[in-house]
């Protein structure tokens, strides 16, 4: 069992807090590519228990920022800490990520789940039951033997999501997981994300969809030109965005 404790805000909302790895902090984070400064985040701390939604126009650096936080991209400068510690292998293993386009292994649906469970050291005897539970959770129970890559877009993304949840991550990074899905498929993905968040997984999610940010998020991180322009609770962000860019973004103006 994971060590879950209730934080102050968690006690209010009934959300258990991932104890070990929050807050996530970034200090002096910079990333440059091709002479262009993609990320310039001098000081960022994410401690909210509920989902953090990263919003911003195209090219704002949203996808790069979560890759930096997840450790997939090395920054040119700066450091990221989890609960004040450098992220080690064990801490990384308590994280997972789902990408915009699901990357499914060339195996069956269950094969994809077994892969991650095996990696997390789940004994063979327990794996089958865990896979069954995960399939039910993703509403994929009848499709276990099917090739993962023959699934529809929505099913594939659900598989990617339950696979990410298979290791019971403390932090789940999501990079626009519903951007190419229809409303029905999006709704099912959102339900899975909301359930994971309620169960204590810290969700950090990039989205273009303001409605989605409102539905799922507790906190908004508004990024523009590689900088965090705003970090506000959802309830404050939408009625009163502080920066001009965020105001324009919320009002539906095109930021170019």
């Amino acid at each position: 069992m994971r060590d879950l404790r209730l934080s102050h805000s968690g006690a209010v909302t009934g959300v258990p807090t991932p104890a070990r790895d929050l807050p996530i902090s970034a200090r002096g984070l910079r990333l440059q590519r091709g002479g262009k400064l993609l990320i310039d985040v001098p000081d960022l701390t994410i401690e909210t228990v509920g989902p953090t939604m990263i919003l911003g126009p195209n090219g704002a650096g949203k996808s790069v920022l979560i890759r930096l936080l997840h450790g997939l991209v090395e920054p040119d400068a700066g450091q990221i800490t989890l609960a004040g510690r450098d992220p080690d292998r064990a801490a990384r293993a308590r994280q997972a990520m789902v990408f915009q386009r699901p990357v499914l292994l060339r195996r069956s649906v269950t094969g994809n789940l077994h892969y991650v469970l095996r990696f997390h050291g789940v004994p063979r005897s327990e794996r089958r039951a865990r896979v069954r539970d995960l399939l039910a959770r993703g509403d994929l129970s009848g499709k276990g033997r099917q090739s993962a890559r023959s699934l529809s877009g929505g099913e594939g993304q659900r598989l990617a999501l339950i696979r990410a949840l298979a290791g019971a991550p403390e932090i789940l990074f999501l990079d626009e997981p519903t951007s190419s899905l229809d409303p029905g498929a999006t709704q099912r993905i959102e339900a899975l994300i909301a359930r994971a968040a309620r169960a204590g997984t810290k969700v950090i999610m990039v989205t273009h969809d303001l409605g989605q940010a409102r539905r799922l998020g507790e906190e908004i991180l508004f990024l523009n030109g590689g900088r965090v322009e705003e970090q506000t609770p959802v309830a404050d962000f939408f009625p009163r965005p502080r920066s001009a860019a965020a105001r324009a973004f919320v009002d539906g103006h095109l930021l170019v």
Partner: peptide, 25 residues
């Protein structure tokens, strides 16, 4: 090229990904 980010996200090291890549390929 297709798998590397996903495998690294799971926590598989570069060389550790060789058996997976051989099997899936």
């Amino acid at each position: 090229r297709e798998y590397s980010e996903q495998l690294r996200s799971i926590g598989v090291s570069r060389l550790g990904s060789v058996p997976t890549l051989l099997w899936d390929g």
